[in-house]
Each structure stands twice: as structure tokens, then as C-alpha cells.
């Protein structure tokens, strides 16, 4: 029976959500192809993680352990994963399109001389082969592709496939792995600096308007932005009132932005404001006035009091 191998990404002994998502995808594919689903863990102090993977459908977990692998070490991981793929003779390898996955997958592909599809948003079985969709040109178009090598490697975009539980009685095999020579040494992991992100560079923006009523209430915007790793923006009304600095103003006479997510809180959606943000990929509006023009261009709207809605969002994220 052929095997599907899912690389279960962990950092600090904590599994990433994408590992479960990919197992759920792997499960689906293994059913369609009649393949066996195997998870691979790499790192140090990873015992105990194997069982969690079983919950999501892995029949076998190979836990590759080595003292040198407290942190992600590119060559070490690549060698171990490639060796495991070869040893298991897996035909499909799924990784997360995370910063680790994006670094690791091409290395493994190179070692195996296999084809790799990165940042996939859809993987299906069609006529016994994988039909893969990946966005290109910053998502302006999508390519449906096929991998022509015996071994097929994928990195799948996080949040695309939901993590679904499929408990299996899992066999966890612990292996003392040999990471070989590590040339690219990761010496330290540092938490991100709190440097303020500029609205024009941000992928997510949370903007507040006159609906915030008072400059002090902008901590709501700040907290929500923090939770999302977002930049903070403002309407001109908020800037003119002296609540926020001009550099945050979004709109025709402020900055023009096109993040993937723009959350407008207490902003009516005047044309001048829209001119600066209407090209955002997704727009969320929170406003108590159902007639507010912002709802016309919002993908998702909540009609309600921002002082209730926003704290709830902060709590849930």
C-alpha cells in the first residue's frame, strides 16, 4: 500500500494547527487513494506529541528525535525528513505552507528530486492522480497543476482545510535521528518586535472612526490589532479630532491601502474613506447604523454597538 506522509510541524514541543489540518487532508486523500497515513515529527523533546496526531487519523507516527534539534535546523530537518520519506517509500508528502514548511519543503524536494507544489489551496484526487490548485500572481489567478514525479510534495496553506478528528489507534515509533552536518545554524528564536506596522505595509488593518467617541477608547482598536498582528488605521474624523495621528489616516487624503483584511470599526464609509481602502481583499464593517454606506462594500458586516462587538472579538481571537 502506498503511503501519505504528513510532516507535523511543532515548535517548542507544541504542534502547529496546520499539522492537524494536513492530517485531515491526508486522511481524505488516503481514503481516496487507498493509502496509509503516516505522520512524521522532528525535533527534541517531542515525546507525547504522537498521540495527538493519532486523533487526527495518523496510523503511524515516526518521531525523530535528536539533541541538536531543539530549534528548527534546516539541513537537519531536511535530511531526516527525506530519509524518512525514502525509508517509508511514501508517495505523497504534505507540509504546511508556514515559514518552516516553505524553507523545508524545497530542500526535501531537492534531496528526493521530487516535484513540489507550494502554498496549495486545494488538493483532490482525480483519475488516480492529485489535482492541485495554487494561487499565483498574488491571487489574481489560480493554477490547477499536476505533479509528474513519483513522489509528490505539497505545502498547504494554513486555514484552508479544517482540522477534523479521526481517532486511530496509533503506533508511535521513536527514532534516534541523525541530522548530519548542520551548516545553516539556527542559534536562537526571538519574539517579534513590537515595532509599529505601517498601514500601507500591513496585511491586516483595524481602523477606528468617530464611532469610538473618545481617544481613550482606541485601546479597543489597539488590542484587536494586536491580536491579529494588524496595523492600526483611522478615519479622518478620528484624525481631525486629534484622537489619532495623521500617519494612520486611511482615505483619499490619507493613505491608500489594500490589505487582505480591513476591519472598519465605527466608520460610516464616506466616499473619501472608501477611496483609500476599497481595494482591500476582505472588508469587515462594525457599525450600529444598518444604513451606513460602509456595509455596501463590506464582505462581512455586524450591525451593533462596537463597545460590545469589539471586546467579544478580542476575547475570541
Amino acid at each position: 500500500m502506498s503511503k501519505i506522509l504528513v510532516f507535523a510541524e511543532q515548535r517548542d514541543g507544541k504542534l502547529k494547527k496546520v499539522a492537524f489540518e494536513n492530517l485531515s487532508l491526508g486522511k481524505k486523500l488516503s481514503t481516496d487513494l487507498g493509502a496509509e497515513l503516516v505522520a512524521v515529527l522532528i525535533g527534541n523533546n517531542i515525546s507525547g506529541l504522537g498521540e495527538q496526531l493519532g486523533k487526527y487519523g495518523a496510523l503511524k507516527v515516526i518521531a525523530c528525535q535528536n539533541d541538536a534539534l531543539d530549534l528548527y535546523q534546516p539541513e537537519g530537518y531536511a535530511k531526516i525528513l527525506a530519509d524518512t520519506v525514502t525509508a517509508e517509500d511514501a508517495s505523497i508528502v504534505i507540509m504546511g505552507a508556514t515559514l518552516m514548511g516553505k524553507d523545508l519543503a524545497p530542500r526535501v524536494a531537492a534531496r528526493l528530486d521530487a516535484a513540489l507544489a507550494t502554498d496549495c489551496i486545494s488538493v483532490e484526487v482525480s483519475e488516480g492522480d492529485l489535482k492541485i490548485v495554487r494561487p499565483i500572481y498574488a491571487g489574481k489567478v489560480r493554477a490547477t497543476i499536476r505533479l509528474k514525479s513519483d513522489k509528490k510534495l505539497l505545502t498547504v496553506r494554513p486555514n484552508v482545510y479544517p482540522a477534523e478528528e479521526n481517532p486511530e489507534s496509533t503506533e508511535v515509533i521513536e527514532v534516534a535521528a541523525d541530522p548530519c552536518e548542520i551548516k545553516t545554524k539556527v542559534t536562537e528564536v526571538m519574539a517579534g518586535s513590537k515595532d509599529k506596522l505601517d498601514v500601507t505595509e500591513a496585511d491586516i488593518i483595524v481602523s477606528g472612526g468617530r464611532g469610538l467617541k473618545d481617544p481613550d477608547n482606541f485601546h479597543l482598536i489597539a488590542n484587536l490589532a494586536d491580536k491579529l498582528g494588524a496595523a492600526q488605521g483611522a478615519s479622518r474624523a478620528a484624525v481631525d479630532a486629534g484622537w489619532r495621528l495623521y500617519e494612520e489616516q486611511v482615505g483619499q487624503t490619507g493613505k491608500t491601502v489594500s490589505p487582505s483584511l480591513y476591519i472598519a470599526v465605527g466608520i460610516s464609509g464616506a466616499i473619501q474613506h472608501l477611496a483609500g481602502m476599497s481595494s482591500s481583499k476582505y472588508i469587515v464593517a462594525i457599525n450600529k447604523d444598518p444604513e451606513a454606506p460602509i456595509f455596501k462594500i463590506a464582505d462581512y458586516g455586524i450591525v451593533g454597538d462596537l463597545f460590545e462587538v469589539v471586546p467579544k472579538m478580542i476575547e475570541m481571537l
Partner: peptide, 10 residues
């Protein structure tokens, strides 16, 4: 080793 089957708009 990658074959493009089709390009589409989202």
C-alpha cells in the same frame, strides 16, 4: 515535473 492543467480566475 510540474504540469499546468489550467489557469483560472478566482
Amino acid at each position: 515535473k510540474i504540469e499546468i492543467l489550467e489557469i483560472n480566475y478566482p
